[in-house]
Write a protein that binds this DNA or RNA. Structure first.
Length: 197
DNA sequence: AACGAAGTCAACCGCTAATTT
DNA sequence: GAAATTAGCGGTTGACTTCGT
């Protein structure tokens, strides 16, 4: 593919497409188009002066039926935290576990809310003196090698997926089309596997 | 009231994988 | 099998809002 063709940019030249916030009129036209032609062939969408990529994003994030906006519940937040712990920044995978939520929304929510919560938690944990139980379990405060990843596997960002011997593409756990696969039960099942591994 | 800093989130960009020709 | 096209993903940017001084 020619780089940039779907972004409103051809080579170094920016083609004349609208940019910036979508208007209600544009939303309406896009919805009408998709109602007739379906959510495909984004490049061919000629009803708007928008690149196909922008149309696709608008449809996925705002215009699709059953899209939920805002008010992320505690249960959803917990689910995001737990799945993120397992998968890292795989926003689309996380989003598929939260019906009505989009990857973009979850990503934003993570960056603006959850990442801070986590760093605050870690900070308090670092500052807190070790509990008697922790000291008893590891009296010399030695690093436990089997719990640590080798440096080359940790990655620069720390957003690595733990190698649990699972195939994200093949394992049924990650087949998000399976009915009833959404919710905390799935995470619990995964965590069990995690612990066993 | 005015200003700047910090927070939020919609939209864009660059890239890759998958699909089609 | 190669090239072109399309779809999708995650990271980043920038406009807007809120908050503190």
């Amino acid at each position: 593919m020619a780089p940039g063709d779907e972004t409103g940019v051809t080579g170094n030249k920016r083609v004349a497409t609208n940019q910036g916030a979508w208007t209600a009129e544009e939303d309406r036209k896009l919805s009408e188009y998709i109602e007739v032609h379906g959510p495909k062939r984004w490049r061919d969408i000629a009803v708007l002066n928008r690149c196909g990529k922008s149309c696709r994003l608008q449809w996925l994030n705002y215009l699709q039926p059953n899209i939920k906006r805002g008010n992320i519940s505690n249960a959803e937040e917990d689910l995001i935290l737990r799945v993120h712990k397992l998968l890292g920044n795989r926003w689309s995978l996380i989003a598929r576990r939260l019906p009505g939520r989009t990857d973009n929304e979850i990503k934003n929510y993570w960056n603006s809310h959850l990442s801070k919560k986590i760093s605050a938690k870690e900070k308090t944990r670092e500052e807190a003196p070790p509990t008697p139980a922790r000291v008893a379990a590891n009296p010399s405060n030695k690093r436990i090698p089997e719990l640590a990843l080798p440096e080359e596997e940790q990655g620069a960002t720390g957003n690595t997926i733990p190698d649990l011997g699972l195939d994200l593409e093949q394992d049924d756990l990650f087949d998000f089309t399976v009915e009833g696969s959404c919710g905390v039960d799935w995470v619990n099942k995964f965590l069990e596997l995690d612990q066993n591994a």
